[in-house]
Design a protein around this nucleic acid. Structure first.
Length: 154
DNA sequence: GCCAACGTTGGC
DNA sequence: GCCAACGTTGGC
């Protein structure tokens, strides 16, 4: 089982929005970065777990945990000319962008804030990619050790 | 293949 | 709103 961190701007889609979805399930769409795409397409597996991270908001940090329901498949929003995330490059036969389905496992009782994570940037969480300077990837792998350590902070 | 211009991300 | 960091595009 692999572990991941998925970023979302809560103004656009928060963990509470996910909780309100039918089956607490949604397609994680709108990823438009090739490195992130490659992970969704090639590396995500059924049963993987991911942190749900709130970015670009008053209290950035990890809000909870989601479960990956299956492997990546083409992002329908990229193929829809009326959608804000439409991309004219790519087709149903040769898709450019991918999604995975995720289901809410649990929302943390409180946000594990970026400040808290940073407090361990030189220690236990030195491998956590979102703490690296200038990192902007919206999909990043998390090591098992980092996953367990962060769970211990909640 | 280089690189300048441009757009986006995301914390503050 | 600012700005550093970084990815993508496109001319050459």
């Amino acid at each position: 089982m692999n572990h991941w961190l998925l970023k979302s701007e809560p103004d656009t889609f928060s963990i509470d929005d996910l909780a309100a979805c039918p089956g607490k399930t949604t397609a994680w769409d709108g990823v438009r970065n090739f490195q992130a795409r490659n992970m969704l397409r090639d590396d995500f597996k059924k049963g993987d777990r991911a942190f749900f991270y709130h970015s670009s908001c008053p209290e950035p940090g990890i809000a909870g945990i989601v479960e990956v329901l299956g492997p990546g498949y083409p992002d329908a929003t990229a193929l829809d000319p009326h959608h804000a995330h439409h991309d004219p490059v790519g087709s149903a036969d040769d898709p450019r962008w991918f999604v995975v389905d995720v289901r809410l496992v649990r929302k943390f009782q409180r946000i594990v804030t970026l400040d808290e994570l940073r407090a361990h940037a030189a220690g236990a969480l030195r491998d956590l990619l979102i703490l690296r300077r200038g990192n902007r990837l919206s999909v990043t792998p998390v090591t098992r050790a980092n996953w367990d350590f962060i769970l211990g902070l909640t």
